[in-house]
């Protein structure tokens, strides 16, 4: 496979990697470009764009609501691809699409992968795509279109399963920080630290980013001590929802995490 931006990032930067998630079409249909530019300018390392879905079962209230708003704004995969086609050339940062399987399957998996490559998407996270199905039906497609696939692990994932996931993941592994949906805001517990360390000691080939419940500088720093970095989603959506001046407030938020 050809090199892609996700691999380059992890090659050039060993830690403190910050990935920022937002839902496409939120708060307004045409905010995609402005948000992506602001994220890159503020110095985040990866942009993760959520494809809105009517039934996001792994997401908490904040991201659910952003999905509903985005769908009411009329966001679709077709519109998202056309937005990305216009702006991708202007950005250097790796871009990942995160979405549930049904809208992708209805779009057509091959057409979807092809389009992702065309508009400069580097990787995918599809939480309800089972690994077995991926291996049997889609792995070849992902490779053809130079897309890295990220699987999730949680504190309940067995060591054998983590090894299997590590074998079949390329790019990075998404470590769900606790048994939770997105946006659960808790302090990092000793049990979580033990889980981060247990996985850290496994000598996996893939780098790891920690997500779910990472919301501010303190939780980001803790996560970054135990993995290559972390993903912030719900807390960023809250910033977008409240923002009067999007670019400025995105900049302030991301700088506050990295400070």
């Amino acid at each position: 496979m050809a090199m892609n931006r996700i691999e380059e990032l992890f090659k050039n930067k060993e830690g403190n990697i910050l990935s920022i998630y937002f839902t496409a079409g939120f708060p307004s249909l045409n905010d995609t470009m402005g948000i992506m530019e602001a994220i890159e300018e503020a110095g985040a390392d990866i942009i993760e764009i959520g494809i809105p879905y009517s039934d996001p079962v792994a997401d908490g209230p904040t991201i659910q609501e952003s999905n509903t708003v985005a769908l009411n704004n009329g966001m679709t995969l077709k519109i998202l691809f056309s937005q990305l086609a216009e702006l991708r050339g202007k950005l250097k940062i790796p871009v990942i699409l995160m979405g549930y399987l049904n809208p992708i399957v209805q779009y057509g998996m091959e057409e979807f992968c092809k389009k992702c490559e065309e508009v400069g998407v580097d990787g995918l996270i599809v939480p309800d795509l089972p690994m077995k199905q991926y291996l049997e039906s889609y792995k070849g497609l992902f490779e053809t279109y130079n897309l890295r696939n990220t699987f999730l692990i949680s504190p309940q994932t067995s060591p054998d399963r983590i090894r299997e996931i590590d074998r079949e993941t390329d790019g990075f592994i998404y470590m769900v920080s606790s048994a939770s949906i997105t946006g659960a805001k808790k302090d990092v517990t000793p049990e979580q630290i033990a889980y981060f360390e247990r996985v850290g000691d496994m000598g996996l080939k893939n780098p790891r980013l920690i997500g779910f419940g990472i919301s501010d500088k303190a939780s980001f720093s803790t996560a970054a001590k135990h993995a290559q970095g972390a993903i912030i989603g719900s807390a960023f959506i809250n910033v977008l929802r409240e923002a009067k001046e999007l670019k400025k407030e995105i900049n302030t938020f991301i700088k506050s995490i990295k400070a």
Binding site: V57, A58, L101, P127, D128, L129, P130, Q133, F151, L152, I153, S154, Q156, T157, S158, R161, I165, V176, A179
Partner: peptide, 9 residues
């Protein structure tokens, strides 16, 4: 079984 990995176990 199209489930998030968190439900796999």
């Amino acid at each position: 079984a199209y489930i998030p990995e968190m439900l796999y176990p």
